[in-house]
Design a protein around this nucleic acid. Structure first.
Length: 516
RNA sequence: GGUCCGUUCGUCUAGGGGUUAGGACAGUAGAUUUUCAUUCUACCAACAGGGGUUCGAUUCCCCUACGGACUACCA
């Protein structure tokens, strides 16, 4: 085969918010496309009108963009193979189903839902291990294989409801080579006569997927392992449609599992375990109660996209070196489908958090300041860019998320209303209060102060009071911030400014019990 | 039930016929720090079980167990 352009696609269904596993699938597609100099397509698979959820498509676009996954061609971008939404491609599929019928690889089936249920019930009663519409049972059903030709024609002409099913051969080994798993072999007897065209005239996933991948000249299909069982069916479809020579290469990704126990990571696990399973926050409605629900998102929880991407990339893949921190560009350079593992991975909250802390600390103060400024804005507090940068500068080593800045740095903007009890009871006494008063009075009035200067002054003042700095430091922190812990105290004082510090010291001395 | 896929520290994983089975996260301990955090150092901890093949198997093969996916006119 000649060198083919690499074209991969991410093809989600707009049935709700994009799951974090879907994000990883999209990411691997993207990495492979970029690595091999190919194209990344986005196709919306909305052939099931019943499951369509408004806003889901926009969500998918926004989530991918937030992660830095760039779509070269497809929904929201356009391109030469449009439209990229299957509902808009509806008229294109019928001819392929007709072709399959003409070639004897598919047939019309007129069975009602009740008849299908009855068939399954009958087979179940007869202890048939796997009740399905297949090469054996189709002989008992109402379809164009069993009905006389003129009756079929009459039904069709009379507008009877029908579906088109694939005529899967009785005995045949279907095999294909999976890029991750090697040869996968399935006997055709295990595959049922899948519906290709539904009675509403829409194709099912299987037909639409194969037709679109072929028409869009997809070279690699990278998708979740849940598709592995139907891959042989897809191979059959390519073959019967006469497209086997350009059939894409398959790669089925291992699943993402719940952090605890086992099983596929699901929407509910996030709520249960307290971490997001969606990239962005999602406002939906409960399917049963109809109540409005909010699902947490990584973005809103304060995760940086580069941290999420780095973490996700390593869930099921690794470069074979000891390096763990990778930018998107580095991932592209290092990625290879051969190094994707076969076994499923459990989602590890600690590891994502660690990645987030890493990327947070790697950011400049100027990049981080907006997060604090945003929170301040919400609390109607005015603050200069410069001061915000100073604060995030001393704070970024001690927080996990940008959202923590406000909570941790509150006291820079609000004088403490209460003081840490443990420190007060242990470290606060009349002598300390007096020493702090002395320090407050000794504080320079000049606007230019340095942490070093304040520290020296503190040490000198304490010496004059006959106290060791260590005896008073904690009390000073509590008096000024109310908290028992925080960044370097004298840096904190500098940011606060002398007038504010003086004021807070006076308040503390007046408020706190001078006993003991 | 059937078909298919999988199984190395608690977690993500490297490795691979002969290794002290390596790293990271988490955990623990210590150092640093005025405090907490950071940082640094150390420690803890794994080849699911049973059969083969082999001089030798965690690595190759088979079986078992366990886990998972699929089994719709859903994707």
């Amino acid at each position: 085969m000649t060198e083919r352009e690499v074209r991969v696609r991410f093809a989600p269904s707009p049935t709700g918010p994009l799951h974090i596993g879907g994000v990883r699938t999209a990411l691997y597609n993207y990495l492979l496309a970029r690595k091999l100099g190919g194209k990344m397509l986005l196709r919306i698979e909305d052939t099931d009108q019943n499951r369509f959820v408004p806003g889901a498509e926009e969500y998918i676009l926004e989530a991918l963009a937030w992660c830095g996954i760039v779509i070269d061609e497809g929904q929201g971008v356009g391109g030469p193979h449009g439209p990229y939404k299957q509902s808009e491609r509806k008229p294109m599929y019928k001819q392929y189903a007709d072709q399959l019928i003409a070639d004897g690889h598919a047939y019309y089936a007129f069975d009602t839902a009740e008849e299908l249920d009855a068939m399954r019930a009958r087979l179940q009663a007869a202890k048939v291990p796997n009740p399905q519409y297949n090469s054996i049972t189709r002989a008992q059903m109402r379809n164009s294989l069993t009905l006389p030709e003129d009756e079929v024609k009459a039904l069709l002409d009379g507008g009877a409801q029908y579906v088109i099913r694939l005529k899967v051969p009785r005995k045949e080994e279907v095999r294909f080579q999976d890029l991750i798993r090697g040869w996968v072999v399935v006997h055709s007897s295990a595959i049922d006569d899948k519906v290709l065209m539904k009675s509403d005239g829409m194709p099912t996933y299987h037909l639409a997927n194969i037709v679109d991948d072929h028409l869009m000249e997809i070279s690699h299909v990278i998708r979740g392992e849940e598709w592995l069982p139907s891959a042989p069916l897809h191979v059959l479809l390519y073959r019967y449609l006469g497209w086997e020579s350009t059939m894409p290469q398959f790669a089925h990704l291992p699943l993402l599992l719940k952090p605890d126990g086992t099983g596929k990571l699901s929407k509910r696990d996030g709520d249960r375990l307290g971490f997001p399973v969606f990239p962005l926050e999602w406002h939906g409605t409960d399917a049963e109660t109809g109540e409005a629900t909010i699902s947490r998102g990584y973005r809103e929880d304060g995760y940086l996209p580069e941290a999420l991407v780095n973490f996700l990339a390593f869930l099921g893949w690794n470069p074979g070196t000891q390096q763990e921190i990778f930018s998107m560009d580095e991932l592209i350079q290092a990625f290879s489908i051969e190094r994707v593992s076969k076994s499923p991975a459990k989602f590890d909250q600690n590891k994502v958090k660690w990645f987030n802390e890493h990327y947070l600390r790697a950011k400049s103060n100027a990049e981080l300041a907006p997060y604090l400024l945003q929170a301040l804005h919400e609390h109607a507090i005015v603050c200069s860019q410069e001061k915000a940068e100073q604060i995030v500068g001393v704070m970024k080593e001690r927080v996990s998320f940008p959202n923590d800045f406000w909570q941790e740095a509150k006291y820079f903007f609000q004088a403490p209303t209460e003081y840490d009890e443990t420190v007060v009871s242990k470290k606060w006494n009349a002598a300390v209060a007096a020493a702090l008063t002395a320090y407050a009075e000794a504080l320079p009035t000049a606007p230019e102060v340095s942490a070093e200067g304040l520290k020296t002054l503190f040490n000198d003042t304490m010496a004059a009071q006959g106290l060791k700095p260590g005896q008073v430091l904690q009390a000073l922190r509590v008096a000024v911030t109310g908290a028992a812990a925080g960044p370097d105290l004298f840096e904190t004082l500098v940011i606060l400014g002398v007038p504010e510090v003086t004021e807070r010291l006076r308040t503390a001395v007046a408020t706190l019990p001078a006993a003991a």
